[in-house]
Simulated scan of single mutants.
Amino acid sequence: MMDRVLVAVLALGLLAGCGDGNPLSGSDDDTDTGTDPGTDTGTTDPIDSDGRLPPGTESPTPSSRIVRYEPQDEEAGTGMIRSPAYDRENDTFFVDNLAFDGNAPYSRDNQVGSLGPFAVYENAATVLDPVTNETIGQFTHKAIYAVSQSGQTELAIVRTGAYVDYGFGGFVYQRNGGVTLPETGQAIYRGSYAGLKDYSGAGGLDYVTGDATVAIDFEDFNDGSGVSGVISNRRYYDLDGTDVTETYLTALEEQYETDLSAVPDLVFKVGPGVADSNGEMTGELQSIAAGEVFESGNFYAILSDGADGDKASEVVGVIVVESELPGVSGVTQRETGGFLVSR
């Protein structure tokens, strides 16, 4: 594994990983974490994928549970989390395979406990050496977790700002049942968006919130051409919960020499090959500032029936986009966000 440059110096020590568990199991009504989704019968480790979909469920069908993970790339630090799990009784979140993130479950963040319906968790700040009883400082990691009110879809994102390059982390999103795809008509889905923004060329971590809208033309679904979407009304917050959107907009306006009333929307590119017959979707998205492409990246999503048999009633998805950090030379930013939308 490639060595990575740390923002802060850490005393050497050993660390146990944070817990085991099934992908995203558990629920919490206060944070839109509805019902227990059950147990995944497939692998929870990344696999080689023969398509553009992220690794995960090897042989998906319209009626099956589907779990997708961020593709693993050790040099980029992506796809490193394993078997995340939510403990509803204790309101804690388990993450495995991230070094120096404590040896206990992540607890609800004591400064920013939620981003709308998305719950926020943080790792322990210190660990004790069991032999010397010496305190070992840990790297700050944040986890965002959300599940739809039906319990049929959920997601988790984990990132850290403890490295000068992008830190180690990952995302998982899943459908806990099946989907019945309509053959005609169109549908629009609306809901919330939240995520984490980390940096390459500088340490640090920020939160983002927003609104998500996805529209599907089912008559063209077999050709994969009938999906559009937008992430709008984005706001940025530091780890203390301070809204830093206006500072960000000022830097963006100076970079593009234009006036902006809001952070540019992220818009899905509509085209063939976006969706498949299992209800999975993946494609590109971007934002535009002053007529130029500002952010670009990919979206990944799954369509699901509701808990009461409502056909094709909700969508879970994750987006990852990158861009230059406005006002700071030589620094790029990566925004990893998730959305839960329903009809």
Rank of each mutant, 00 (worst) to 15 (best):
P46S: 01
I47A: 07
I47V: 14
D48G: 13
S49P: 06
S49L: 02
D50N: 15
R52H: 11
R52N: 14
R52T: 13
R52V: 10
L53F: 15
L53W: 11
E58N: 14
P60L: 01
P60K: 02
T61K: 09
T61Q: 09
P62W: 09
S63H: 08
S63Y: 00
R65K: 13
R65Y: 10
R65S: 08
R65I: 06
I66M: 01
R68E: 00
R68A: 00
Y69G: 06
P71C: 01
Q72F: 11
Q72L: 11
D73H: 03
E74A: 12
E75Y: 13
A76Q: 12
A76H: 04
A76F: 06
G77P: 04
T78D: 08
G79Y: 03
M80L: 14
M80D: 10
R82Q: 09
R82P: 03
S83H: 09
S83V: 08
A85P: 07
A85V: 10
R88L: 08
N90W: 04
D91C: 02
D91F: 11
T92M: 04
F93E: 00
F94G: 04
F94E: 09
V95F: 02
V95W: 07
N97A: 12
N97T: 10
D101S: 15
G102K: 01
N103P: 07
N103W: 04
N103Y: 05
A104S: 14
A104C: 05
A104M: 09
Y106T: 02
Y106D: 10
S107A: 15
R108W: 00
R108E: 04
D109G: 07
D109L: 05
D109Y: 10
N110V: 09
V112A: 05
V112K: 04
V112C: 05
V112P: 03
V112L: 03
G113M: 05
